[in-house]
């Protein structure tokens, strides 16, 4: 997957680059709207990570620019403004998803993958790893080809792990992924723990291997090795 990250903050841009490059994506960076425009005209990208507030223009203008130039690619807006209006405006202008700062890198990755799945893999909504297969359309989980009944949250959790394989996922990142805006509750650590515990138990009972490691006090990791 080829990604263009348009973000004026160089440190944040480099974080995005590091994380995505590690997933073997081709990632390019643009620090300003003009730079982004140039890159968009000359190259094509599967996904574009777009910061709304840029030093030389509004990200929404770039959206309109892409529309008028018929540049394809899924767009994920990243903005410091969480206001509902901005969100709606961005999505109406043709963006595929919206993420507010400060975001978790695994979340960014999961969103990009989700957009990509929706847009490009027609009909193929299966995310699989060895004996595990997830259907992102029907929310069905199969272990060794057999259906496993899970709650929606457990399904989302497993999908999050599969997308971010071999990555340390902090409890905050998981809580944020599972409950989105409704994570004002900082005691989420317990809830995340419960969900992970239940998920491992279910996969184990269905004969699946235990891939989920606990990483010190930090969080969890889906270990493929």
């Amino acid at each position: 997957m080829k990604i263009l990250a348009i973000e004026d903050n160089k440190e944040l841009a480099s974080s995005i680059y590091d994380y995505l490059a590690h997933e073997n994506y081709i990632c390019e960076l643009a620090y300003s709207a003009s730079e982004a425009r140039e890159k968009l005209l000359f190259y094509s990208y599967d996904c574009i990570v777009l910061d709304i507030m840029l030093p030389d223009g509004n990200g929404l203008e770039l959206l309109n620019f892409m529309k008028s130039e018929h540049i394809s690619g899924s767009i994920l807006i990243v903005s410091a403004k969480g206001a509902l209006d901005d969100k709606i405006q961005g999505l109406e202008s043709g963006a595929d998803d919206y993420l507010t700062k400060p975001f978790h890198l695994p979340e960014l990755h999961a969103r990009l993958r989700a957009i990509h799945r929706r847009k490009n893999l027609e009909g193929n909504n299966i995310v699989s790893f060895k004996e595990i297969a997830l259907n992102t359309n029907t929310f069905e989980l199969k272990i060794h080809g057999k259906d496993l009944d899970t709650t929606r949250k457990e399904f989302e959790l497993l999908l999050y792990f599969l997308v971010n394989k071999n990555r340390v996922l902090s409890r905050q990142a998981i809580a944020n992924h599972l409950w989105g805006d409704y994570t004002d509750n900082l005691s989420n650590v317990d809830f995340v723990y419960q969900h992970v515990k239940n998920l491992r138990k279910k996969i184990n009972q269905a004969g699946g291997a235990d891939y989920i490691d606990t990483i010190y006090g930090l969080g969890y990791k889906f270990n493929t090795h």
């Binding site: 440190e11 944040l12 974080s15 975001f103 978790h104």
Partner: peptide, 8 residues
């Protein structure tokens, strides 16, 4: 966001 991503 920078802090969080760097820590990650």
């Amino acid at each position: 966001a920078v802090l969080r991503s760097k820590l990650e």
